[in-house]
Design a protein around this nucleic acid. Structure first.
Lengths: 334, 334
DNA sequence: GGCTCGGTATACATCGTTGCAGATGTGCCG
DNA sequence: CGGCACATCTGCAACGATGTATACCGAGCC
């Protein structure tokens, strides 16, 4: 157990450094020498010790990914895309679940384990920009999710406001006038939910439809939150002819509750979401939603982070690319 | 950037080794000394370099988790549980997506990246036991998912057969006699799908219901596979009054397709699955399924793997604990 | 033939930590 | 008061790789 370069060197009759050179594709090695080393490597079953390499070179070739919880489908799908993008560029991803708690997020930014990664992809939920900047120090960092916005931070943006406006406009075009919104407080301005809410209000205003604060229902971020909120809404007696879940999980929870209570979707009440989960396509009825460009987000975020890592000292201006979104009109709101 | 133990030592006026001792909670240190060191640490913002520690100690405190793809909800939920269990024991998890390809699985078992982890949790899909044993070598390894069964390998078992029999029995108890099965070939004996199929047949036999091979429909493992298979089944004209998806994704795909075609669930056709995804609870109608004991599986697998890692040389017999399962009766098959 | 030059291989120090083997100091016992 | 045990602290050598500097070698040039 544990063949080292030294063993290989001895077996091949060369110096340790030559083995290193072969492994790192150094240009000037005689083919015969190279072959001898390669033979020795495969004969002994040598494998590079990445830990040692990291210590010496100062790079781990790992990216940290901090998100709330993998059991939330949107994060799982995003994580999957991010891992593929990173892998394609020779990096691995170390996922850290923050459980949406400030303490865990902070720990991820500045804790011990930071030293295992070359940079961080971070989906902040509990910390604000100031806290993030303080905690992160100089480590390469790219934010995702737009919960936090700040001109000093690199991030990949979702067009929250525009996309939410598009969903709302679609519902309005379908003749809906009393569109309930799940997942935000009426006053929210910040965070992705705030931005999405703003998009909703903008679309209403553009269509000349009055905004009723009673239709904005705060709730958790998961399916049960959407279901509960819908139940409360139905019980409250407030009239509505559509539900816009600020994410698909909420919309699916709402859909479930509406059908449970015998409401007809979409005839009576239309339902729309935001995220375009794989699951949403297969809901019954299938869910109208907007795709925020997940694959593009993953790709861009990884690319940007790696750029920051590999040109660490270079001067650079903050980048905040926006991903393209796309409406997905399905049965729940045709 | 890069405060080392040496810097701390100098600042605290002690030797480097004493700093190390403080950090590792060595017993015999005068409180005053300890405090001085701790002060220096926080003043300088020192952080342990885990890479160096790993190199020196030979432990990385990371577990590898090899699975097909995080975008598959069952794996995402399992991964989430595994990470929490590992974290609670001081380990992190490095996820590797195999995409269900033999080559990737093999690479995960014996590739470079192996040296970054102390042991591997592996959900095999493409490799068989022999290949796994050959590729894995002596590295601590615990299998999950029961796609492979072998008395030489540690693994945490799902009661595939028993649980599938329970689902089938439940459908039979509801008066169903023509139960279609999605996700296996009629001949399958191995793998979780084979075992689940065997449970299905056993339950039919126990109830004295004849088995019709035409009701067994092979298909992919995701929602679209279930939908396609259901479409084919409907088109073929084969009669059936229930569908048993060998996992929830398939069942949900089937549910979607049935409703799309105007079939009433459960009145006309009952639907049941296997996995108890979070999503299944919120489907409409909610999905009857069986929970394989995901949290317990995660817990036990992590525990077993860590035991193997930490008592590496000790003689031990192969362990194959079984997780308890639980029926979840919901609307789709009351 | 001696000298330069570029290709090829090597030696040595080094990354930041921990294991091991001691060195020092303190208190207590006889 | 010497000796001994024990608490406390220190120094050195490693872990396995890579960077830098340099040694060697044959070919080409004058």
């Amino acid at each position: 157990m544990g063949v080292t370069m030294n063993d290989v060197a001895r077996a091949a009759g060369v110096s340790l450094k030559t083995v290193s050179n072969v492994i790192n594709d150094y240009e000037f090695i005689r083919p015969a020498t190279k072959q001898r080393v390669l033979d020795a490597i495969s004969e002994l079953g040598y494998e590079t010790n990445l830990t040692a390499r990291s210590l010496r070179s100062g790079k781990t070739s790992m990216l940290g990914l901090v998100l709330a919880d993998l059991s939330i489908p949107y994060y799982a799908e995003l994580a999957s895309d991010i891992m593929k993008a990173a892998w394609a560029r020779g990096y691995r991803v170390l996922v850290e679940q923050s459980g949406n708690e400030a303490e865990h997020e902070k720990a991820a930014l500045q804790g011990q384990f930071r030293s295992l990664t070359d940079g961080l992809l971070f989906i902040p939920l509990a910390l604000d920009a100031e806290q993030i900047i303080t905690a992160a120090g100089k480590k390469p960092l790219v934010l995702l999710g737009e919960f936090v916005q700040d001109p000093r931070l690199d991030m990949v943006l979702i067009q929250n406001q525009e996309a939410a406006a598009a969903v709302t406009a679609h519902l309005l075009a379908g003749g809906r006038r009393r569109i309930a919104v799940l997942g935000a407080h009426d006053g929210d301005e910040a965070g992705s939910n705030g931005l999405r809410l703003r998009g909703y209000r903008a679309a209403l205003a553009a269509a000349g439809v009055e905004h009723d604060p009673e239709l904005v229902v705060p709730c958790g971020w998961r399916r049960d939150g959407g279901a509960d909120a819908t139940a409360r809404l139905l019980d409250s007696g407030v009239e509505f002819d559509a539900v816009f879940g600020l994410n698909d999980a909420l919309a699916l929870g709402a859909l479930h509750e509406l059908l449970l209570r015998g409401r007809k979707v979409p005839e009576e009440i239309a339902v729309a979401g935001f995220d375009d989960l794989d699951e949403s396509r297969f809901a019954s009825p299938s869910l109208t939603t907007v795709a925020p460009g997940r694959a593009e987000i993953a790709e861009r975020a990884v690319e940007l982070l790696i750029e920051r890592i590999e040109s660490k000292d270079a001067v650079h201006s903050v980048q905040q690319p926006k991903a393209a979104f796309a409406m997905k009109v399905r049965q729940s709101a045709p």
